[in-house]
């Protein structure tokens, strides 16, 4: 099972706001067949985002949802060199992780997402993603760190 593929990496995300950026990443998931209903999924993500924006210090945003429209645990990754306001106090986000979890989902699947969440707290992991020259490198970093640590 692959958490992320090259088609799920957007290195030049230049959307106007976090909702537009989320849509771009969600479209990538839908294009890969990992999200069956784009608008349904976006509504689920938005519901979570409205409880409390998911921007975090250090320039990252982690929009996420458990949704019935997700077929397998997936990560869509976006890099926004200009930054997009994600509600964090210390400024806009440059690394965006859209995390999609299926509604049911066995423990094994969810454990991969848990491992991903833990890696997001590691400076080396963030820097590797920030400096990755291309989508293949991003996929390699995530796979090496999260899927097959």
């Amino acid at each position: 099972m692959s958490l992320i593929t090259e088609n799920l990496v957007v290195l030049n995300l230049d959307s106007a706001d976090r909702h537009a950026a989320t849509r771009v990443l969600a479209q990538a998931l839908a294009g890969e067949g990992r999200v069956t209903d784009l608008d349904g999924f976006l509504a689920d993500v938005r519901k979570r985002e409205e409880q409390m924006p998911t921007g975090l210090p250090g320039g990252i945003g982690i929009p996420h949802a458990r949704s019935a429209y997700v077929t397998e645990p997936s990560l869509a990754f976006g890099r926004a060199p200009a930054g997009i306001d994600w509600g964090a106090e210390d400024g806009p986000a440059t690394l965006i992780f859209l995390i999609a979890a299926p509604e049911g989902g066995g423990d094994d699947h969810l454990k991969i997402l848990a491992a991903l969440a833990r890696r997001l707290m590691r400076t080396e992991f963030r820097e590797a993603l920030l400096n990755a020259p291309d989508a293949t490198t991003v996929v390699d970093v995530v796979t090496r760190e999260v899927v097959n640590p």
Binding site: H64, A65, R66, A114, A115, A117
Partner: peptide, 11 residues
């Protein structure tokens, strides 16, 4: 949601 912040906070 129980898939992201929980684990980031633990870390």
């Amino acid at each position: 949601t129980g898939i992201a912040h929980t684990y980031m906070a633990a870390e």
